[in-house]
């Protein structure tokens, strides 16, 4: 399993996320090639990833997203944040309030 989400980046627009899966999973938002938010659609999310991304579409203009369906959304979310931390030394701007994240995977910028 790749440490990063392997799905292609797509524009974060209402039209583009309309066919996102109504399932639990994780997603990543980026703007100008910089990850700005890593989030998840959990067991209480209405319409899963589709619902979460629809809610974000207006709040994050000029942004792309990629998503991954998984039932292990909490541990996968934590892993994605840890990978980002290892590669950049920081958490994404939208996740700076998250506590207890440690680096995962190779340190420094590697791969997509």
């Amino acid at each position: 399993m790749s440490l990063s989400i392997r799905a292609p980046w797509r524009p974060l627009t209402a039209a583009a996320v309309a066919d996102a899966p109504a399932a639990t999973g994780v997603y990543e938002l980026r703007r100008d090639a910089t990850t700005v938010l890593v989030g998840y659609a959990g067991g209480s999310s209405r319409f899963g990833l589709r619902g979460e991304l629809t809610g974000l579409a207006g709040a994050y203009p000029d942004t792309e997203y990629r998503a991954e369906v998984t039932t292990a959304y909490l541990s996968r979310w934590r892993e994605l944040l840890g990978v980002h931390l290892a590669r950049t030394g920081l958490l994404p701007a939208g996740n700076t309030d998250v506590r207890g994240i440690g680096p995962i995977g190779p340190k420094g910028p590697v791969g997509p």
Partner: peptide
């Protein structure tokens, strides 16, 4: 100490539980 040079958490191993996940 986990900040020792040469110590790396390679990945989280995703399982049936997500609380205190395995690495």
């Amino acid at each position: 100490d986990t900040d020792s040079p040469g110590f790396t958490v390679r990945r989280i191993v995703h399982t049936l539980r997500t609380t205190h996940p395995a690495t």
